[in-house]
Design a protein around this nucleic acid. Structure first.
Length: 566
RNA sequence: AGCCGCGUGGUGUAAUGGUAGCACAAGAGAUUCUGAAUCUCUUUGUCUAGGUUCGAAUCCUGGCGCGGCUGCCA
């Protein structure tokens, strides 16, 4: 018996699954599936679905599995490039479908046989109405539809027509196969829905074998049933399709299982857009560098940005699973990666916008090495040696000519600690002809090493990061920020506006020669660090060359000072 | 307009007829060689009107609000 504290609350989907298992349904088995259409790259919203479906299967090991199934029933939109990226992204997120990789297109032959079964039962007919006529017959949300004039064709005629559709005797759109349900149904999806359409198009897997393709509403429940899916979990917009899902599963004989569909609300993140159509536009119109641009909410973008799979999984766990139409703040995602990286990643010092600081009482020809800890949160990460000489770079914004009220950092006459080294007092501020500060002079106090505070003086309040000028390496650092400048680009654009008008013009700022501590020159592609006091960074996996790192900013540190200033 | 679904602090999410809790955000303080992290404390909530009940966020009815649905897309 576990206590309440040990038993995490189940979301409503997991509760349904748990109850079914308890009731002995499906022989105690739980079989879920993640069914993407390969018409784009996976995004953070898909991660929620992946974590749900694969997560549920994991939780019911060994009486469970989760299938990866490509819902590839529309050859005009689907490509193998997308298939490959989807598999890569699911694996990267940390999930494994084992041998359970499927394609809806694998079942085309079966779908076809089931369609003939429906025809033979008098439950499907070939309809010659064109798209416009069919729309006119469908009725509206408030008015019932009218029967197609072809609705009462005989079984033999329907069978013949359907086979000729399949044989390629008709052009695109000339006719369709429709389920015969109820044109007066209040649910429009039940008004004799099209289940097969003619499409003379090459399919990414079946090539030119087929010229008729099943509709999603027809293929999906049957794919689920063929694979023995027990719980078909999808997003809310399919709720209205559930009666059709059930109708098909109930009216077709020879299906190995009778899955149930349940719906949850999709993830909505602010400060970004999530629809595949819009993401595709960002790519095609070069608003971003590609699907994996670090500003994209795609999994490949987040990966390149430096997000960890663990942080995304933690985020998905945090947002929960409900039917409420929720808007999740981007800050929650950012917090998830900070929390992960804080514990796992080594600290380094890097100066993004350098200002030279000369330690006047430090010998010109002297160089020393200071041993510093790599990660105060994890002693096992060990230590490294940090070089120091007479001239160092500090961050320009760590100096204030006229300091604001509770300023703790550099200003003339103030004492500040150089992190990991000693305290210095700023003794002189050197400016050029325009009044721009170009150099700081200071003196250091040898007695303040090893964390000792200067005796008899006010306690030093600030420790700032620095990089030894003689040893610094220059590297580009890409400062990524949110892609949009408004929290809801869709709403800002309205119905006929253009969301690309709200792209954040400063979502990418490239610092060409940041000054990095020496050890960073050997960063491996994909290696992450915390640049002390600045944020978390990753050596870009594509652009980092041996000895020539390029860094991406994953996320800033939380900045209590900036917040207080607002 | 019709059908379906959903309404709990700023945001997200628990409480399954019995003390409205948690996380993030926000605020105050402690601590700090990262204005980070950590620790302590605090503010803020059951859409609304009725009904059932000893007792309602929970069940019922009406209203209001939000979302989805009239592709040969998924």
């Amino acid at each position: 018996m576990t206590t309440a504290a040990e038993t995490p609350r189940l979301d409503f989907i997991r509760e349904i699954v748990a109850n079914d298992v308890l009731a002995g349904k499906n022989g105690g088995m739980v079989v879920t599936r993640f069914p993407p259409e390969p018409n784009g790259y996976l995004h953070i919203g898909h991660a929620k679905s992946i974590c749900l479906n694969f997560g549920i299967a994991q939780e019911h090991t060994p009486h469970s599995r989760c299938h990866l199934r490509f819902d590839d029933t529309n050859p005009t939109k689907e490509e193998t490039e997308y298939v490959d990226s989807i598999m890569e992204d699911v694996k990267w997120l940390g999930f494994d479908w084992g041998t359970h990789l499927f394609y809806a297109s694998d079942y085309f032959e079966k779908f076809c046989n089931f369609a003939e079964q429906l025809i033979n039962k008098g439950l499907a007919f070939v309809c010659d109405l064109n798209a416009e006529q069919m729309r006119a017959h469908r009725g509206t949300l408030t008015e019932p539809g009218r029967n197609s004039p072809f609705r009462e064709r005989g079984i033999a005629e329907n069978l013949d027509l359907f086979r000729r559709m399949k044989a390629g005797e008709f052009k695109d759109g000339e006719c369709t196969l429709r389920a015969k349900i109820d044109m007066t149904h209040t649910n429009v999806n039940m008004r004799d829905p099209v289940i097969y359409r003619i499409l003379h198009a090459d399919h990414h897997r079946t090539g030119s074998t087929w010229c008729i393709y099943p509709m999603y509403d027809y293929a999906h429940p049957l794919s689920d049933a063929i694979e023995g899916i027990t719980h078909s979990i999808c997003t809310l917009e399919f709720e209205d399709h559930r009666p059709l899902y059930d109708w098909l599963v109930n009216h077709i004989d020879g299906l190995p299982s009778r899955p149930i569909q349940r719906e949850f609300s999709r993830l909505n993140l602010n400060w970004t857009v999530m629809s595949k159509r819009k993401l595709l536009r960002l790519v095609k119109e070069n608003h971003v560098s590609g699907w994996d641009d670090p500003r994209m909410p795609t999994l490949s973008g987040l990966r390149r940005r430096g997000y960890t799979p663990a942080s995304i999984r933690a985020f998905c766990k945090g947002v929960g699973v409900t039917k409420f139409n929720a808007q999740t703040d981007m800050g929650v995602l950012e917090n998830a990666v900070r929390e992960d990286l804080n514990k796992t990643v080594e600290r380094r010092m890097a100066v993004l916008r350098p200002l030279k600081l000369v330690i006047e009482n430090y010998p010109e020809d002297r160089t020393e090495e200071i041993e510093v800890v790599n990660n105060p949160e994890n002693p096992a990460a060990g230590t490294r040696k940090l070089p120091l000489c007479r001239e160092v770079f500090i961050e320009r914004n760590d100096f204030a000519d006229v300091p604001p009220k509770d300023w703790r950092r550099f200003t003339l006459g103030a004492e500040v600690r150089l992190t990991n080294a000693f305290c210095v007092i700023c003794t002189d501020v050197i400016k050029d002809a325009t009044g721009t500060v170009i150099e700081l002079r200071c003196s250091y106090d040898e007695t303040t090493r090893h964390g000792k505070n200067p005796e008899g003086r006010a306690k030093v309040k600030a420790a700032v990061h620095w990089v030894s000028a003689r040893h610094a390496v220059s590297a580009p650092v890409r400062m990524y920020d949110r892609l949009f400048s408004v929290d809801n680009p869709d709403a800002a654009a309205g119905d006929d506006g253009d969301f690309t008008n709200f792209i954040n013009p400063t979502s990418l700022e490239i610092i060409e020669d940041a000054k990095l501590e020496t050890s960073l020159v050997g960063a491996d592609p994909g290696q992450r660090f915390q640049f002390i006091r600045i944020g978390y960074f990753i050596a870009d996996a594509m652009d980092t060359q041996p000895g020539k790192p390029v860094f991406n900013r994953v996320v800033t540190m939380k900045d209590g000072y900036a917040k207080q200033k607002q």
